[in-house]
Nucleic acid binder design. Sequence first.
DNA 1: TTTGACCTTCCCCCTGTGGTAACCTTTACT
DNA 2: AGTAAAGGTTACCACAGGGGGAAGGTCAAA
Lengths: 131, 131
Amino acid sequence: MNISEAAQHSGLSAKALRYYESIDLLSPGRAQNGYRDYSDADLEILRFIQRARATGFSVDEVRELLSLYRDPARHSRDAKALVEDKLGHIETQLRSLREMQQTLRGLAERCAGDESPQCAILEGLSHHAAK
Amino acid sequence: MNISEAAQHSGLSAKALRYYESIDLLSPGRAQNGYRDYSDADLEILRFIQRARATGFSVDEVRELLSLYRDPARHSRDAKALVEDKLGHIETQLRSLREMQQTLRGLAERCAGDESPQCAILEGLSHHAAK
DNA sequence: TTTGACCTTCCCCCTGTGGTAACCTTTACT
DNA sequence: AGTAAAGGTTACCACAGGGGGAAGGTCAAA
């Protein structure tokens, strides 16, 4: 299977496939003409990668998930640990975003939003407390 | 005021100050010895930048905020528009994170987390629905 | 045979720094 | 006066996660 076909079936771009190969996430074989040749097993892994990325895992985290995926002697505990770590990060990000949201809402509320140069947003950012 | 002093007073790194200068966010003067020389006005702008970044604005958004900040003929409407646009993005990010959270929680719940290689997380990612 | 669609490698671009090197200035100590 | 540490300067390489595009090789159909 050529790269564009593999890209289509996996939901990834051809560019991404070459990138994943360059960082040794997966190594498809090569045909005589030098073209990459993706097997069905490769495609399955590509789909795995696509779903993991879409679920928020970084490429390095996907690498860890993949090594578990490929390891018949794995412990499900290790996979669960990765997921729970990720959940912790997400919680942190959520808190940070909510805080920004609060700050921005507070600033926007106090800004008239008219023709006047007088603006609580710019003042809030320039003076002391932005939050 | 030297770069490290300006960095300390603004809460930014010296590296960041050089970067902000290289992308024309602010241009401090130079002393005879070639060292950057930050004025009080520069410092105020640095603090503005620091607060805006901490509030979640990208460097390019900070650039827009700064041009409003420096413009005496500005309209507060423009600042408010930037903030509301940002609020929209934050809302999108929040939704996406919450979705990932749901997915990951669902996967983690169904994973025993023991010695067994049998793992709902890896299966969930490899087969059809990851969410 | 020629054309167009594919493939290949290669390099530059983005954000927002961190790290390092090579070099110059200033300050402090002996 | 000499010197060493602590600052400053520029410049380059690296990271995620690819996108965009150039220059060239291949393949398939008309």
